[in-house]
Design a protein around this nucleic acid. Sequence first.
RNA 1: CGGGGUGUGGCGCAGCCAGGCUAGCGCAAUUGCUUUGGGAGCAAUGGGUCGGAGGUUCGAAUCCUCUCACCCCGACCA
Length: 588
Amino acid sequence: MSVTCTNSLPRLDAHGEVLGQRYSTYLVPTLKEAPAEAEIISHKLMIRAGLIRRLAAGIYNYLPMGLRSLRKVERIIRGEMNRFGAREVLLPAIQPAELWKESGRWDHFGPELLRVKDRHERDFIVGPTHEEVITDIIRREVRSFRDLPLNLFQIQTKFRDEIRPRFGLMRGREFIMKDAYSFDVDNAGADRAYKAMYEAYQNIFQRCGLQFAAVEAHSGPIGGSFSHEFMVLADSGEDAIAFCPNCAYAANLEKAFSEYPLTPGPQDEPLIKTHTPNCRHVPELAKFLGVPEALIIKSLLFLADSEPTLALIPGHREINLTKLKDALGGREPVLATPEEAEKIMGVPMGFVTPVGAKVRILADLGIRRLGSGVAGAGEKDYHYINAQVGRDFQVESFGDLSLVAEGDPCPKCGQNLTIKRGIEVGHVFKLGTKYSESMGATFMGADGSESPLIMGCYGIGLGRTLAATVEQSHDQDGIIWPMSLAPFQVALLPLQIQNPQVTAAAENLLDSLTSLGVEVLLDDRDERPGLKFKDADLLGLPLRVTVSEKSLAKGQVELKQRATRSVSMLPLERAAEELKTLIQAALA
RNA sequence: CGGGGUGUGGCGCAGCCAGGCUAGCGCAAUUGCUUUGGGAGCAAUGGGUCGGAGGUUCGAAUCCUCUCACCCCGACCA
């Protein structure tokens, strides 16, 4: 068995990638039908186009074509990170448990954290993120303000044992992430680092050809820090975003705030207990009493670490669990079941009352504006009318607990907000001193005093960025790659490969294109034209060049642009230069 | 974790409820001939311990028990 050898080695680009790849010697297992496991379009197309294959739930192989695109995302990210002053490192995937115990996250991270033991029964984790490791480096190596500021990043594999991985690369358990960590001596410096990363991220997603928005994000109970998520707009996105069509306001629904319209309840009216048979739910109660739903004080019983808390919110509003969790100091609120509620409050759900309640009561700001309203009476089939805040029941604290809804007024300009869906591809986060304090990462200032470093962290999901690109850029026939992320820039299709003239013309074009640094996939398979066209559409390379007997007779080749489907003829001898020009224009 | 569903050749599926010879179909693969600008035709060929284990039975892809894997929905509003 012998293999035919080409007389020369292939041309490589500056990154060591093959410029002109022959389909016949590549691995591009395209499929006519999408495997049943794939649900969303990007997942289906990435499998059908032979970019990825699933190994286990939420764990994927990148095949050669997929890897080429991944590398391009990686290079764009690396370039912008370097440009904005971050320095690349590479940290281990496996980390000793001690570090996580020190930061407190060994106990608090939950089952997402994959814990493993080595042969000596010592505890390790597979890194879901690297704050601990990076902080450990800094506390060992950085002593003085003279070493600062510093921003370190890496591009590396993470593992998070997600409850429910789904949508292919979109929410995997193992995934590749760019994570950066900044260290500054003061808040002003930390803000500068944050702004630099914000700008870098805008460049990155722009260069990836994505339609995206930077939105205010939930920052959790980590302190008075702030954060932004970079969202790719797509209907299949797992996140909801509130947008103002008028001003620049945009926020993750978890974070979005609105002072929604509300008519205050009557003041200083007597508390009246009234019979409300079978009125368990807000709409039926409002209808029965002939009052607006907003006047009803919804009392929801939650358990946080089995401690009961009553959350009050106007009847026409919904609770934002993320905000409630923050109000509970980061403990996960779980809505009590009807049985638990009845056991704790002594009445069936729907009649639970804040009046005289022995549990902790938190209320939405709307309740304070409401002043008084209809509340459960703590007795089956009875409600109170004119239950007044402060007089009839006491609230431990008021806060923003409400979920923003479509049409709510914008907190900045008052215009009606709209809600769109998005895929979170990046997150910039001001951490403050959470890790530097718990892990003792301090520096000595010019005045000789020792202070904790101010940190920031900044992440981008590479696979998710790739999937989001496909999600946003495809048609019925397949992927439409932006020039910047396409595995190859040109698909070169000789149609009659048994015709030596056609083959020679294609080989010559391949040679001149690669000598100009153009990335070409030459479909040298002995297949019918229709099949090659279908595969080319599926793979979605931006420029398709067809070499056929027909066009060759006129000294031309045919160019078809994947995105626009526009067709034009190029003179054979100038084809390479013209393609090169097109590519440069697209990348500019 | 709760609910629903699916595991049959590389991919997509039928067969299962009413057990019965060598387990089928389409695509893909291999070979040959024809064909050649939008997933070709004909012919032949190869490939499956029917997810796994146990059980019932003369006989199990099919029925029962256990188990593993995967997918979807939910884990949210009184």
